[in-house]
Amino acid sequence: MKRIEAIKDIMKDVKDEIVIASTGMIARELYAVCDRPRNFYMMGSMGNALGIGLGLALNLKDDVIVLSGDGAALMSLGTLVLHKKLNPKNLKHYILDNNCHGTTGGQPTCSEEVDFQSLAPNTRVIKVDPEKGDAPRIPLSPEDISKRFKDAVSPDRA
């Protein structure tokens, strides 16, 4: 399955959930599949999507979905373990595992050597094709993403 198909599959059931998308093509493909104010697109800070999701889920009642890449998840394996420990019930973490750094051209990762799910049983791994993808850059500034997202998730929103 292509990564973008996996993202479509996840998003087709999404209603009010907050969605955090990891650095690179995952964020771009989420934008292409369905842009919405309750999506947060990470452009940098690779490896930190799950940490942001944890901070949200621990402080809001809303359901939170985090879409990580295998490369990003490997960069912050400790966060998987912290997620296992804190395990807020309103947080779902998916790793879209293409066994490579797809965004930067498909250089291999070592994801075949790790069982993310045994490390953190609350992680769901979806195997996807090792391709770069061709979604264009997100035409929003980071500042606009941030403002729009903060308004859309604020507990005091109208």
């Binding site: 947060f40 800070s45 490896g47 930190n48 999507a49 799950l50 940490g51 942001i52 999701g53 944890l54 901070g55 949200l56 889920a57 621990l58 402080n59 809001l60 912050s76 400790g78 966060t79 373990v81 912290l82 804190l86 997202f149 903060k150 998730v153 604020s154 507990p155 005091d156």
Partner: peptide, 24 residues
């Protein structure tokens, strides 16, 4: 206090909390 595994992870949790309207 929530103990984290790395400092960037701690900042990431703080960012999530900030979006949730907290003062981290």
């Amino acid at each position: 206090y929530i103990p984290c595994t790395r400092e960037d992870e701690a900042v990431a949790l703080a960012v999530g909390a900030y979006f949730a309207g907290k003062k981290p």
